[in-house]
Design a protein around this nucleic acid. Sequence first.
DNA 1: TTGAAAGCGCTAACAT
DNA 2: ATGTTAGCGCTTTCAA
Lengths: 336, 336
Amino acid sequence: MTIKDIAESCGVSISTVSRVLNNHPDVSPKVRQKVLDAAQKAHYVPNNSARDLVKSRSEGIGLIVRGVGNPFFTQIIHAIERAIDAAGYTLVLHQISTDDDEIMAGASLARSKKLRGLIFLGGKGDYQSSDIAILDVPFVCCTYTVRFTPLARESYSSVAIDDKMEGYRATRFLLEKGHRKIGVLINSKHDRSIGELRYMGYCEALAEMGIPLDETLVEEAGSFTLPAAYEATCRLLERRGDITAVFAIADSMAVAAAKALHDKGRCMPEDCSVIAIDGLEMSSYFVPVLTTMAQPQTELGTTAVKTLVDMIEGRAGNRHILLPATLRTGGSVRSI
Amino acid sequence: MTIKDIAESCGVSISTVSRVLNNHPDVSPKVRQKVLDAAQKAHYVPNNSARDLVKSRSEGIGLIVRGVGNPFFTQIIHAIERAIDAAGYTLVLHQISTDDDEIMAGASLARSKKLRGLIFLGGKGDYQSSDIAILDVPFVCCTYTVRFTPLARESYSSVAIDDKMEGYRATRFLLEKGHRKIGVLINSKHDRSIGELRYMGYCEALAEMGIPLDETLVEEAGSFTLPAAYEATCRLLERRGDITAVFAIADSMAVAAAKALHDKGRCMPEDCSVIAIDGLEMSSYFVPVLTTMAQPQTELGTTAVKTLVDMIEGRAGNRHILLPATLRTGGSVRSI
DNA sequence: TTGAAAGCGCTAACAT
DNA sequence: ATGTTAGCGCTTTCAA
């Protein structure tokens, strides 16, 4: 069922059908109604591929999200959605999985839908300048910034927290509470991502206090999943039963760590404190509430959109914005 | 940058370029390499709209998901992804928001991408037969079944748990543990969705025991969000401080309920037990672990795909499958 | 092995 | 107010 079929069944031309379906004014009420009725009766559904193909450009902004159901993205996505809407653009959300190439996915989406710009959420952040050359629209990396490659700063935009600094602040908070034997729960020491940056912050805080880095306090989970973090915490506790605090680089890992502590017979925070980074909504419903460096999720989203729209509308070039996290003081940390 | 540009820059025809880009065999190695190089150098990215438009049909299966970041969907989506892949099809995931029309979104996606079938996750389930008439491919409703409208059972497929029965089982479990004053935390009494069904199960379990339904034990949160469930629990406790147990119709609501209990000075499970339905991964990392009727998430996904593929390949017609939930015994319920 | 040409379904000039 | 027509970028016969 295409507009051609409808045109024939109504005895009008396809352009008239197209006009009706797109609410163009120059159509007589009589014909308009006839076409509408026919479309309804025939269960007509427009083919967006054909539409996208013929339009020279859309008012769409693509959002490439890595990781179905990463709870940390929920609020950011909602904020982006609202901000894009408010700016008069249309959100085109596209999910990719862990091992997909976000740049490719973005480029493909942008071409196919004639998008005006792109936002990347949860990207790997290890691009080469040759990688991003295929992107012919402005884009902004949200929640991460390309730190590990010689990508020219003026060739892309980013909106994120200062991961290293927040890792430093979290660790520093524990140090100030008197903790000295602080285990750290990370994804991987050298994954060239936010995890590595947060870990660097941990190292820096210790160094500043003159505490040498003790490798036996560092535990790699290999991923951000709950089971992996749980197992990692168990290993850490087995090796270092004397720790008084754990810094988990993500709220999700902290949740699993808290459970592991409990299962190993330790109370949180009496026997062992826990702090993290992210500020998931759900971790604020824990008992006790998880102490964490909460990312400004809504602001990250709105700022990403603002930065992008400024570029699209020629008001500004590429920018890099770091937003501060906010300490959420829960009951998972105690002074010693 | 289109295949036409590449064709010109290589001095070949567009059909040759198309052949190279699609790995067709009948191209000389020399020409193939030249085209590949040119495409690479020019940062060529195919336009999928044009592709989709010209193909008579794809091997794609659409997955329409309502609700960005509903944690309950994560595992199901992964299972669907794997199953679709294993069956030789391609997953096309499409997110819609709360107030979007999933049937429309599905129909549109199916038309535009020439899909072979659709899976709906988190649909409203209140369709009229006129609504689904626009769908010209087989589809299966996953995690819900259309219970509240006179939709002919043979006109669609579904794979879900028996929400009413699991609501009954959860309530029954509390009754067997000796609880009699059981508060129930629901989304809405008459939202014509799974929430209503689960609530009906609660009513049935009470009725079976000869306990009259006490409206003051029923609290509507208005949504499945944590803040709404938290507030609802507070209202419930204020009105009925004498309850010894709460049945929350979803794990997410139970999480908020547990926090509210704590903040109101009640211990879980000593002062008040909590049971729910869903079986989120995260709620099994709680202390104490949340007792819940865990949905067979992976099986729901794989069964949905199997049902759909059977229809696509003509091996079967529409079917309705109910899968049993499994009681996950945590520490959130005690006997009295 | 390669090219020419038709057409997927639609929009947007341009005519009338 | 309505119709005609030229593509959008691509795949796929059909010829050569």
